[in-house]
Amino acid sequence: MTAALEVSRLSFGYGSQPVLEDISFTVGRNESVGIVGANGSGKSTLLWCIAGLLRAKGTVRLFGEPSSRSSRARLAMVFQNPEDQLFMPALVQDLALPLLNRGVEREKAFREAGARLADFGLEDYRDRPAAHLSLGQRKRAALALALMRDPELLLLDEPTAELDGRAVRLLAGALERIPAAKLIATHDLGFLRRTTTRTLLLRAGRIAADGPTEELLANEPLLEQAGLI
């Protein structure tokens, strides 16, 4: 089977300032891969390039096909700042929208949206707008929304940044149950250990290491050099 994601020789800069240089890696189907790197090392930018939201040099292939509107429909992403992924007057309407858009019956769409919110411990907020949630709750809501599309590749940007301990544990458990390839950008090394088997280390826009998460986390000089410990 072809890989879920193949990135080759990807480079990107905002204006003339290079941010990503010559990035190549693949993510297998159902593989869970971490991207670590200090603040500003280019993690978010890399995810945006993969999602086709920024135009980069090099190639991105999704499920063996060139990145296109239809191949990108098979991926979902949770932004580092997810407040703008949710905009309806009620949370349940946000989650139902992708289903309605796909032609699912209204009642069924709302039933599934409500069930998904309950899965994420947000049933008390179903009729409230996302703007009334805390940042951590909003992050969970954005993940719940991403899953409404049954993505085969899930891109997560700093998923634990605002979560409390219990929410992190629940998130790690939930991710394990999702049958999709995952690419998780984070600087939370504990979460990385729990949720990924392989990790890419990003330093100043280049891949400084690519290997088993355990091995990478044991390499203290490398982590220190990358500004992670």
Partner: peptide, 14 residues
């Protein structure tokens, strides 16, 4: 934020 909102909706296919 407007850019991010547009990005989110284009990702969602809306």
């Amino acid at each position: 934020r407007a850019e991010r909102f547009h990005a989110a909706q284009s990702l969602a296919g809306i």
